[in-house]
């Protein structure tokens, strides 16, 4: 059984994510710091909360850095806010991001309703481990006010249309991100969670 950790910023529903991982046969632990030895095959940064408090909870309460904890080999899945934190900075806050992917996080176009909330379809730009078995045009559940803007477009593996092209899935080294919530996206989302866990087993 693959053992993974969810980092809890203390700001909302991580129950559904835990539930979804367990249904895909993972053993899940909730962690609030990186101080213990990394005995996990994967790490999840959930998608609830606000940029600054979430970044602070990751940075300020551990002696070990996030980057040192996960290294080059622990697969990390960042969901929504969790993915936004991979980047260097966000218009949602003043704090520096984790900076593992070059680029920034900006507000969605203001002529659209914000948050972008509901089911939208994804266009797959290139093959990706996390999207194995996912048909192009699948519906997934989004709820967010910001979008990521990577310096290098090659990290974007799928996008969605909301007035502009919104990067929906990013992949860079051992970092996987989804702007939508796979744990809330029905059976399609569950397949993605399963794909991530398969990466963790490798």
């Amino acid at each position: 059984m693959v053992k993974v950790a969810i980092f809890d910023y203390g700001a909302g529903n991580i129950f559904s994510l835990k539930n979804s991982l367990e249904k895909n046969d993972a053993q899940v632990e909730i962690i609030t710091s990186f101080d213990n030895v990394n005995s996990y095959s994967g790490l999840l940064l959930p998608g609830v909360g606000n940029f600054d408090p979430a970044i602070k909870s990751i940075r300020d309460y551990s002696k070990t850095d996030f980057v040192d904890f996960v290294g080059n080999d622990t697969p990390v899945l960042g969901i929504c806010l969790g993915m936004e934190m991979f980047f260097e900075k966000s218009e949602e806050g003043k704090e520096k991001g984790l900076g593992v992917i070059d680029g920034e996080v900006i507000l969605l176009p203001t002529e659209m309703k914000i948050p972008h909330m509901g089911w939208n379809d994804i266009q797959i730009e290139r093959s990706s481990k996390i999207l194995e078995g996912i048909p192009n045009g699948s519906w997934v559940y989004f709820v967010h006010s910001y979008r990521v803007k990577p310096k290098n477009d090659d990290v974007i593996v799928a996008d969605s249309d909301y007035g502009v092209k919104v990067p929906a899935v990013v992949e860079y080294k051992n970092f996987f991100g989804t702007q939508f919530h796979p744990e809330k996206s029905g059976n399609i989302g569950s397949v993605m969670i399963g794909n991530f866990l398969r990466e963790c087993k490798k």
Binding site: N50, P53, L81, P115, M117, S145
Partner: peptide, 8 residues
Amino acid sequence: MELFGKQC
């Protein structure tokens, strides 16, 4: 909103 984000 400040604690959980407006989506909640």
